[in-house]
Design a protein around this nucleic acid. Sequence first.
DNA 1: GGAAATTCATTCGTATGCAAATGATATCAA
DNA 2: TTGATATCATTTGCATACGAATGAATTTCC
Lengths: 153, 153
Amino acid sequence: MSAEDNLLKLVEAEEVDDHDYLLQEQVGFILRKAHQRHVSIFAARIADLTPPQFAALAKLRDVGETSQNQLGTLIAMDAATVKGVIDRLKARGLVELSRHEVDKRRLLVNLTPEGRDAIERLIPLAREITQETLAPLSAKEIATFMKLLAKLA
Amino acid sequence: MSAEDNLLKLVEAEEVDDHDYLLQEQVGFILRKAHQRHVSIFAARIADLTPPQFAALAKLRDVGETSQNQLGTLIAMDAATVKGVIDRLKARGLVELSRHEVDKRRLLVNLTPEGRDAIERLIPLAREITQETLAPLSAKEIATFMKLLAKLA
DNA sequence: GGAAATTCATTCGTATGCAAATGATATCAA
DNA sequence: TTGATATCATTTGCATACGAATGAATTTCC
């Protein structure tokens, strides 16, 4: 019985023998491995920045100055995580921080000129990373996969 | 410039303006979000074990006693990561460790009776986690998605 | 206006995840 | 047989990732 058959059986009958539970067929396990592979491809092409750090710079390039919390929402990081990422980018001079004049709770984050240079320089590499990650799929499969993956995320 | 113009340009010239780089459309970013969502669903159903810990127990159930390194290979964890996971499972009495009699480098890992009870009890919940993670997709979409995801992982 | 609730940010603790260095053991090859 | 290699495990350091608790500032609502 194939993995797809098991999945169909699971969905349709909502019952299978416990002996049929195979870790390597579970979506969570495969998602984790696919993510690991992507991170590895990313690191091979962009050694001096992590994917979350790149995401922060790329999003700041899109939206301009924003609060740390808002940035976290945009790149799907909770407050504690985004703080660490921004701290490290600040330490490297790629972003600068300032207080919101009206709402003194907010910490505004913006690209420095060095940060803008960096993200502009890295975007072509990021395109290659996306391509290499998707390389096992045909163009048609890529379109299908991205549509379905977006539904899950 | 319209979206169709961009598409034409992309297809014909294989070159796009850097302004067209959108983080939220990149496979790595969406993979990370899909994985986050799965972990969140997992945590809601299985509060006392993480996905990597569950993976270790589930794989030990499949293959029986193995070395720590071999287990790491089977569940896609490097040696440093698997050590931490096994240490925590050992501290909770779910696995037991012993030295390989012949090859004294190897650290054998096995389920304790408590560990076996735990994984048997959790597998039905794990099925529900898989179902809930895939719930946004139809049965046919699930089959397609799993096939393509496996190619990427 | 003022108390309650909300929002923004920080800190702490725990758990992956991986690169690199190290030590112990085992295997290979001259 | 022994010296070079390879394998297994551990440790350290760094970087996410998130729950929970805390404090400061703002907004809501009576």
